[in-house]
Amino acid sequence: MNYFLKRVLYAIPMIIGITLLSFIIMQVAPGDPTMMFTDPNVSLEDMQQVKANLGLDKPIIVQYGYWLSNIFQGNLGYSYKSGKPVFDILLDRLPATLILSISSLFLILIITFPLGLISGYKKGSFFDDFVTIFSFFGMAIPTFWLGLMFILLFSLQLNLFPTSGFLDHSLTNAGLFTKALNISKHLFLPLLTIMVGGIASLTRYYRFGIISILNQEYIKSATARGLSEKRILFKHAFKNAALPIITILGLSLPGLISGSFIIEFIFSWPGMGQVGVEAVFSRDYPILMGAILFSSVLIILGNLLADVAYTLVDPRIRKS
């Protein structure tokens, strides 16, 4: 528990650090920061008042204080483009992002474990060579291009899946099942694209873990006690090799999220990433800043979760 508490305490300065970084970028960014925090419908006279309220005549460190207190009250500012509050816009997009990222994470793990296990166990076999080549290609292919290639193949050539979007407009009032089916159809290609890269790199790690664990003395000892290969592999090697994957997963979260943002954009998947990338084009700094803050906090929470999960499953940390 002590360890857990320490982790939580670590997260707080990290979040503050990220807000500081965001604040600095906002200061450097062109445009009047007042604009960002103000409802665009207020009149010009009120603007002066707002400036004073925001403390823009005060030293920069005080400004940061005001800004931070705004952030913690859920005021991430207003979009330059649509004038809507950034927090609402992003919150609105969160479900789509979560659907995509959680389902991809889940599927990546489900596929990685058996793939890496067998590949590591049958090291040097045809299957292992195949998995290794797949891993290397999966890590080298630019995700966004892979997405384009999938669209080219599955949508334009074979006409199997829609090229983009979340739900067909005609189905807005359809039954839940029809809707879910339609969303899944839209989900398939972006999901597949994200999975390729994720599976490629995780399998590589897991395979390596399995290989090094199969060389450990306790595996030899278990074999010497007459345990079957199946049992050794699926009980003893599986768990030991799976533990570091939790940490690696936590560490690769920023990459996975960055990757999925571009994918959301390519497939017009209405998540945070899509608004984020579109904000890049329209130079909508408040939205960009909000997206960075949001995703950073998600990443920190994910890391925290990974840490906690690790302490729960690894006896060496838990009990020492």
Binding site: G17, P254, G255, G276, V280, Y285, L288, M289
Partner: peptide, 22 residues
């Protein structure tokens, strides 16, 4: 190292995009 952790928690691509448009 805590400062490094902060940098590592930011989705780098977005940071790069933001800096690039500035």
């Amino acid at each position: 190292m805590r400062i490094v952790d902060i940098f590592m928690a930011i989705p780098t691509l977005f940071l790069i995009l933001t800096i690039q448009i500035i």
